[in-house]
Design a protein around this nucleic acid. Sequence first.
DNA 1: TTTTGTTGATTGACTAGTCAATAAAAAAAC
DNA 2: GTTTTTTTATTGACTAGTCAATCAACAAAA
Lengths: 211, 211
Amino acid sequence: MPKVGMEPVRRKALVEATIHEIGRAGTLDVTVSQIAKRAGMSSALAHHYFGGKTQIFMAAMRHILSQYGLEVRRRLKKAKTHEERLRALVDANFAPSNFREEVVSAWMNFYVLAQNVEEARRLLTVYYHRLHSNLVHDLRPLVGDEAVIIARRIEALIDGVYLRQSLRNEPANPATASELVLGTLENELARCGAQRPAATLSLIAQKERSE
Amino acid sequence: MPKVGMEPVRRKALVEATIHEIGRAGTLDVTVSQIAKRAGMSSALAHHYFGGKTQIFMAAMRHILSQYGLEVRRRLKKAKTHEERLRALVDANFAPSNFREEVVSAWMNFYVLAQNVEEARRLLTVYYHRLHSNLVHDLRPLVGDEAVIIARRIEALIDGVYLRQSLRNEPANPATASELVLGTLENELARCGAQRPAATLSLIAQKERSE
DNA sequence: TTTTGTTGATTGACTAGTCAATAAAAAAAC
DNA sequence: GTTTTTTTATTGACTAGTCAATCAACAAAA
């Protein structure tokens, strides 16, 4: 019973099925049939719309990254001070939309994919650069030239928290994860930007009810 | 021309070939034939000695972890103060034997493997617990109850640095990586254990020529 | 009747694991 | 000290299974 205008619906279903299936399996070793089945169609149709497995994967990765980008922009808009913006940048990584068991696992697998597939690496690099320049932009006024090195630390820390999370069986806890990173950031700020301790110390203090 | 007593030689060759082949390919998707070929034998022989692909992988992972454990013990033996021991624990992760392009890539893939294979997860958990209790043991005298949270930060940071490294094309730089983590540690110590700033500040200062 | 949606069946490539066969060393038997 | 047997090392060829990708065919809408 074919209905017209299915393409966007199918594509979306496939992309989401891909992320969940990879997350569930914990590996990129999922078949097109598995993905298609979860998305409620035949594997032939998946090929029809995306061309090949690699392209399905890339679409899924692009979706994850754009989801993340959305979250960042949404939170940055609400932030006023540099401190608030830093908090927003960190918290975006642990927003419920990104920081869920299956999605985290998919993230890890995309990291691995980026080691092989040039396009995946490029996508990840763009995300890295954006995060880095965002962080540095708001760190520099607070800590001067140390901004770059502190940014590198925060970036690595975020990735590390993701990696650890992917190995847990327990569901992700955004608050704990966020606090771990923000606590470190606060320390760095307290040391380097000792001239304005009051503002920096408020990073963690405020309660967060993001969802 | 079969020579007797080949088993240990073959096993070792296969384990090393596995790590390098996974590192080179950037994925666990390497065939037994590829591994066997790199190790200079037929795939049938690989099966003969290890039984199956999974067991080859597990042996490779065990090898990586024991290599790492060796490095930790070697460095801890030379360390006297708590500060020196902390430095040793961090640096061990970036020792040339572990922190090389191919090995780092293999590490990342083993992380992914740990999401699927129970035994891999167990191995990784053991390593985690050991690192954690080592860190806490030497942090507590310096920072008291904050030891646990600081340890968690350092652990995540180390993993993050590995992850970032796996995405570079450039060869790993142990000094830079180590400094990134030690710098953070130093900050934490300076804040919490302000009573003894002189000792903590020496963490980075000393030159290292470990190889 | 052309375009869009859809699938079952098929193909072609690849791969983990097995097995029978061979060859040399070591051990046992004579 | 020689012959036989057993153990260890080794591989080419094969099996059985999987899976990405294709295709022919059909159905409904435009």
